[in-house]
Design a binder for these strands. Structure first.
Lengths: 349, 349
DNA sequence: CTGAAAGCGCTTACAG
DNA sequence: CTGAAAGCGCTTACAG
């Protein structure tokens, strides 16, 4: 049983296909008395559903938004996806999703598939490293932009399209000030890879803010931008600072991990060493991922409105001028202090 | 600058459009010596990208799989999405995603949009209640199936299409046996709404298994199928069992919460009451969601391979006969015992 | 093996 | 306001 076509509806309503099209699928034209009703009735009776593929071909616009994220199972990305989803729906668009699991071949392939499907816009969300800006992806995007496609990147240093960027640097600085305010004077940093800009910005914002107050981190250790990266960095950091359980009277260093998942990994590592947060070591993260809600100890962090980021990306993607003008939109962060950074022991005077 | 069309490639290669089509986009035909190379060269030089919309129209197949989940930001669903994604990619399909945030109007709308885009298959993943099987959705799906569409539901009691179902009942029973094995004899249950089949199956599997050993839960309390539902149920349960911190020598009841998120909410509630897990009360959940990894205390649970579930759903969606035959595929669970159910205090003899 | 042509289901100037 | 017709970019019997 073949699907009902527009022509079927038109015939049943006793009008031309053109008229049926105008009644059913937008158009400012006002049809004559009763005509619209007749067409709509016919469509309802037949159960007509417009073929979006055919419409796309005729209109040269698909209503599709391509979205590539590095890992859909990561709460950071799934929140962004939620925002994209919601905004796309309000705008009457549909989202094509691809989760690359951080494989750049898959990313390139996804983008070209999106282009093949003539997505009206493509949103790239990930933590790309500045090094791996591969030529092919760049060339595909360039051609896509020429063909009137829109590209929006979130949180990545890409040389084309519009961008929505979390204010990593400024927000990390605010976190540093808040921690100083709490009385902390001894800091350490668990950073990410040097070529992930997000990680670098956060580290710099934090360290530079400390510097303005004459404070310098005791140690800095880098790890992968992941839970396991935080875990192993934390072990090395514990060794470097000679952290030991219950050394009352000593200083309690405050560690800034450049992402929540790294911070969570770090806490797990310390727990395995018998260290207690915040008694033996304090810690703060970044992102305020949803899963933090029931984490113990509760983690000080910086909240980014991930859903908001997704929504803004769609807004830019729908704005003709934005991507052409290479617009950058900044999303602020909000410092949240929780148990993990409570300074229990005061540094001996 | 308009996109390059197949005709452009054909002209440049000095062949007909038909030949170019056959060379570039599949077809078993073997072209003559050199022809294929010439066409491919022309395509490469011009940067030709096939228009998938036009292909879909001509082929009557879009290569699109529509996926609707109830909440993409929930780790349960995002893991399923990851599996769907991966399997779809291997099969050369693209996924259209919709996260409904549990709004059934949005779900219906999403399905009809997917149908409009002529998705080859639609996968419905959620925790639908048996009551809200709305007529419109059902009618849309019926027509879609008639038009050669495939429908796969995961974990839902829907009267059409194929289904992949976690073996909730059997796995919960295994959990019960494992807990008995650990020495537990005093149980309680935090269940879900009576019209969510997943919740009911898990509760029944657990309680019935206990019954075979002559054990009956001391209390059963139901809550929303969510973190907050677990939280408030846990408070009532604590009151019902008169749980108090550190009552050494007393029994330690073991509570089965029908999902991990409910269990996590329950633990949070107990913590607020000063109760310690597993010393004052033991608990086990269901799902083994990824975020459990660093939860303290570590939670006993039943692992469902969520990614696997997503992959199987795609396999069914791609199988013509499966959805017609209303096939049900079952995915087993695996019991994992962790700290939260360790029985420290032995019941006085 | 290759090509001319019809057809997929819509939209939209262009006439009337 | 309405309709006939061309066109969107492909695929695929059907001839040759």
């Amino acid at each position: 049983m073949a699907a009902v076509r527009l022509q079927d509806v038109a015939t049943r309503a006793g009008v031309s296909q053109a008229t049926a099209s105008r009644v059913l699928n937008g158009s400012a034209r006002v049809p004559g008395e009763g005509v619209a009703d007749r067409v709509r009735a016919a469509a309802a009776e037949l159960g007509y559903v417009a073929n979006a593929q055919a419409q796309a071909l005729a209109r040269a616009s698909t209503g599709l938004i391509g979205l590539v994220v590095h890992d859909i199972a990561d709460p950071y990305f799934s929140s962004i996806v939620q925002g994209v989803q919601a905004a796309a729906r309000s705008a009457g668009k549909l989202v094509l999703l691809s989760s690359t699991q951080r494989d750049f071949d898959i990313e390139r392939e996804s983008v070209s598939t999106f282009i093949s499907h003539r997505a009206d816009a493509i949103i790239l969300a990930g933590s790309r490293q500045s090094g791996d800006l591969d030529r092919d992806l760049e060339k595909d995007c360039a051609r896509y932009l020429d063909n009137n496609g829109k590209v929006v990147v979130v949180g990545q240093p890409l040389p084309f399209g519009a961008a929505v960027e979390p204010e990593n640097h400024a927000a990390s600085a605010q976190l540093a000030y808040a921690l100083l305010e709490q009385g902390h004077r001894d800091f350490a940093v668990i950073g990410g890879p040097g070529n992930i800009r997000t990680a670098v910005d956060r580290r710099n914002g934090f360290v530079e803010a400390l510097a303005t107050q004459g404070v310098t981190p005791l140690v800095e250790i880098a790890g992968d931008f992941s839970r396991d990266g935080g875990f192993s960095a934390a072990r090395r950091l514990a060794a470097a600072l000679e952290l030991r359980p219950g050394r009352a009277g000593d200083i309690t260093p405050c560690v800034f991990a450049v992402s929540d998942v790294m911070a969570i990994g770090a806490i797990a590592a310390w727990r395995a060493l018998g260290l207690t947060v915040p008694d033996d070591v304090c810690v703060a993260g970044f992102d305020d991922i949803p899963t933090l809600r029931d984490h113990v100890p509760s983690l000080s962090t910086v909240a980014l409105s991930l859903v908001d980021i997704g929504e803004r990306a769609v807004a830019l993607a729908l704005d003709d001028s934005a991507t052409a003008a290479h617009i950058h939109e900044f999303v602020p962060g909000r410092v949240i202090l929780r148990d993990s950074s409570i300074l229990r022991r005061v540094r001996p005077a």
